[in-house]
Design a protein around this nucleic acid. Sequence first.
RNA 1: GGGAGUGUUCCCGAGCGGCCAAAGGGGGCAGACUGUAAAUCUGUUGUCUGACGACUACGGUGGUUCGAAUCCACCCGCUCCCA
Length: 378
Amino acid sequence: MSQFELLQTEERARRGRFSTVHGVVETPAFMNVATAGAIKGGVSAFDLADLKCQVQLCNTYHLHIRPGDEVIRALGGLHTFTGWKGPILTDSGGFQVFSLAKLRKITEQGVEFRSHVDGKRIFMGPEESMAIQSNLGSTIAMAFDECVENPATYDYVAKSVARTTRWLTRCKAAMEELNSRTGAINPQQLLFGINQGSTYHDLRVAHMEEIAAFDLDGYAIGGLAVGETAKEMYEVLDVVTPHMPVDKPRYLMGVGTPHNIIEAVHRGVDLFDCVMPSRNARHAHLFTWDGIINLQNAKYQLDDGPIDSHCDCPTCSRYSRAYIRHLFRAGEMLAMRLAVMHNLYFYNTLMERIRQALVEGKFAEFRKQYSVRVGTRI
RNA sequence: GGGAGUGUUCCCGAGCGGCCAAAGGGGGCAGACUGUAAAUCUGUUGUCUGACGACUACGGUGGUUCGAAUCCACCCGCUCCCA
């Protein structure tokens, strides 16, 4: 069974401890995204241990298509398969309802996708998503939802949210049934519900209250950072978080920049995930405590210092900006690996420093010092 | 020695009288990226100017023409074939 312990608060910001069968997560925490079972850029589950990673995130849709969730189940589940022994959260495939918009069709029963690999038709609804996630044996399964692109009409969002709620009922029933089956990879698989409602405050609040009644293991806020302004996103957080259960972890899905994360912690969020540190690292866009740098810029050609002089990650302790820049320009894979490791270490350290600031009652000060600074191009 | 080609902006390479500061690659310079169809995508890349525009450019020199990277002559360089 899971247990979320709220250890401390500072204004709306929270520090907590989430205990799962695969280990404890100190929150606020950033979950490292390994969509297809690996962090893109050549970073393995074993590297993650050196990067202060607490939770790995994998994707239902991608792993269902390749290699197939039945294959992973036969091999003992994601923990055995990837080598990551800590908590794993699997996204439900709901985000692909959004990102594969041109390749799908939504009905009450679920969503018909066209595989991005070979074009094959794939049907996924709440039951299918839960069954796949059960086969993957993740620690935390996410409810199957529809992530609506912003802006969206009130009418469409209202209908979509109502459907997402009905899907949640089916997700919960399916999860309970799957957990009770003998032979389940993780019979204690947790389920998080997902709040939707676009930028409509009344829909957000109403939906949050509805899903809170399901008494799930955690609650996520989805459908943000998908087209709306940062200001609108923060307003949704301001409006929704007061309606989220205090004794359950709160997860802001897919967000975001270091600045977004600090601002969301300030508004009471505990968990995050985002492809930004890994994707941007692969494009030489690196985060430092002084701001953001693009390591491909000519000005770093002769820079023999580390990416970040305040960083003690495996990359910064060994390699110069000039060398990594060269690796990028030469198309060497090592460039991506070193850059991704740095950015993930930065994100995980950011969370560690946020937690430490909360311990010391200095989060407000931390926010003031870093919230804007870490998002500035230098 | 004879014959046939060829020389284009940083590189490769299109162009065959005006719509050419010159396609397309590459390279360079910069930007984007938020539950990853993303080792991807976008912009830009002669000089000057805020812009209109002006100027300098297609091996060299001279010519034909209202107008030449494009046609002609000679020169220079490179390639291939025959002796």
